[in-house]
Amino acid sequence: MMRDCENGQIRDQLPALVHGTLGAAEGHAVAAHVAQCNDCQAEVTLLHRVRASLDAPHIDTAHIVAILPLPSEVMARTAHVRQVRQVRQVRQVRRWRMAAAAAIILAAVVSLASLRQLFDGGSAAGRSASAMAARRSEGQVMPSIVPDESVPVALLAPALVSASPVTIGAARHLSDAQLRLLLKEMDGLKALPCADPEAPHLALVQTDSSEDRP
């Protein structure tokens, strides 16, 4: 009946004792314990038995040596692999440099474009402001496009408006009187800061032009 010795540290060293791989001092200490411990003696016997039982199958070592690569082949392959790796590294570094250069150029172009836009926008605004000031000084009135609410929009008889409304495109067919009326209406329009101004409620009515004709 085999039992475990209570000294776990010693039991841990028994395979090394069997293989003779313990240091001198450690080896003496373990051997001294084994000499007076029946459990450890039984375990050492078992270890020897296990080593003897697990025999190595016969191996044809000459055949193995015959199929081994030559050192020159291995070195050449290793050198080739190293070379390929170096070339890859160089290419990778070159790719990174190209990418970095492209990024820098792109950033420069974008900043230049934005700076240019900033300066051009400022000067254009300045130019339009000075042009408007010049016009005002000359006494010109800026055109207004939104109707003045104080001026009545529907100057024409509603019956006529509903009867035959015409579009602005047909203004060339209007009589002089009608045109004068239209221009007067347009003078009364005011400009509002509106992106999508509502269409003025104007309706042009084609009247009998023979009345105005001389």
């Binding site: 697990l54 199958p57 070592t61 000459a62 030559l70 070195m75």
Partner: peptide, 21 residues
């Protein structure tokens, strides 16, 4: 590595039984 094939034989003889086991 220096080209001595007998060294390969020694290496194989030293370790083959343990590997086989």
């Amino acid at each position: 590595m220096r080209g001595d094939q007998r060294a390969a034989t020694e290496i194989v003889n030293r370790h083959a039984p343990a590997l086989a086991r």
